[in-house]
Computed example of a mutant assay.
Amino acid sequence: MRFVEVTVEGDDWGEESAAEGDNESGDSEEDETTPADTRSFDARIAAEDAIVREELLNWRMSRNDVLNQLLFVVGDRTVYEAALESAPEIVGYELKAVDDERFYAYVQEDSPDADQSWWAAFFGHDFIHVPPVVIEDGVVRLTLLGEFEALREVVDDLSATVSVEIEEIGDYRGRGPRVTDQLTARQYRALRQAVDCGYYEIPREGSLADIAAALECTESTASDLLRRAERAVMQSVLS
């Protein structure tokens, strides 16, 4: 059994189709009946700084053409729920808090348009995805498992709709447990900034001041976040 690990990045995540929908009626932009924001749920969340990370743990298309999704989310639950409430394609949802910054989301969505959505590439091929599918900063990172020819067809279909980059391909041997589950949103942000600025490079390329500036906090706060995050990661690894 082969696997392919890919990164998927949409150009607009539904914004273009929303704009086309506004123009179909021929009304001007000043028409008071035109919704202020008709972006898809994916587009709204991709644009939200308050949502740090989503992990799609499982999904299934039901017999009534509803896409059922179970996600683990790091970020502002109020912002996430507001996006769910205002997206017309969302037909149902339930949120279960883990703490103030992390929660599970069970989301039911009308079946995406088979001709327009990047989801459509998944519906016509035989494969499985290896959870989690990580959604972060408008980019989706996922691992697909199946026969080589089926994986090639999925990647080809995805490439016709969105930008796809193949990170790795080979024989699947499984994965170990995730260590990021133990991190709060701020701790995760601190580690990401530290890695991005080269704080852990040898020799060190970034400083604590760089991390604090990116997080808009004091250096002492940034240091505390890093220490707590590093302790959680080390405890998870050693356990």
Rank of each mutant, 00 (worst) to 15 (best):
E85S: 06
V140P: 00
W13D: 06
D181Q: 08
P131H: 04
I202R: 05
G138H: 12
A213I: 08
T34R: 14
D12R: 04
S25L: 11
D156V: 13
A19Y: 11
E29V: 12
E9K: 14
P35Y: 10
A36Y: 11
Q187G: 06
A222L: 04
D126Q: 12
L215D: 11
D224Y: 12
P177R: 14
Y104W: 11
E24P: 00
R60I: 07
G174Q: 06
D49T: 13
E32H: 05
D126I: 14
Q187M: 00
Q193W: 06
E109F: 02
P35N: 12
F127V: 02
P132T: 07
R141V: 10
I211R: 09
A43H: 00
V179Y: 15
E230D: 03
E168P: 06
E55G: 01
A105L: 04
E230L: 05
R231I: 01
L71S: 04
T218K: 02
V154G: 02
V66Y: 05
K96A: 13
Q108S: 15
E94L: 09
R77H: 05
G14P: 12
A18P: 03
T143H: 12
V179A: 12
D27G: 03
E101A: 07
D113E: 10
G26P: 10
D157I: 00
G10Y: 04
D27H: 11
N64V: 13
R39G: 15
R152N: 15
D110W: 03
W118L: 04
R204N: 01
R186Q: 12
V79H: 04
A214R: 15
L151P: 00
A87L: 00
V139Y: 06
T78F: 04
I51Y: 10
N68K: 07
V233C: 00
W119T: 10
E54I: 03
G124C: 01
A83D: 09
W13P: 03
G10V: 06
G21S: 09
T7Q: 11
V237T: 02
E55V: 04
M234S: 10
R192G: 07
A87C: 00
R231Q: 11
T218S: 13
P88M: 01
F41M: 10
T184S: 13
K96G: 05
G138A: 07
T161I: 15
E55R: 10
V155Q: 11
T78G: 05
F103A: 04
A50F: 03
E201K: 15
L145R: 15
D181S: 09
Y106E: 09
Q193I: 03
S223K: 06
P35C: 11
G75K: 08
E24Q: 10
E201A: 15
S223I: 08
A83P: 02
V134N: 08
D110Y: 05
P112I: 09
R173D: 10
Y93S: 00
D42T: 04
L158G: 02
L225G: 13
H125V: 08
A150Y: 12
D224E: 07
S163L: 03
D65Y: 15
V130N: 06
F127N: 13
S207C: 07
G26I: 06
N64M: 02
S159G: 08
A190F: 05
Q187L: 00
D196K: 14
Q108R: 14
G138S: 14
Q182S: 09
A36M: 10
K96F: 03
E48K: 12
Y93D: 01
R228M: 02
W119D: 03
D65A: 11
I51R: 02
E165S: 12
I166V: 15
E201S: 13
T143Y: 04
A150P: 06
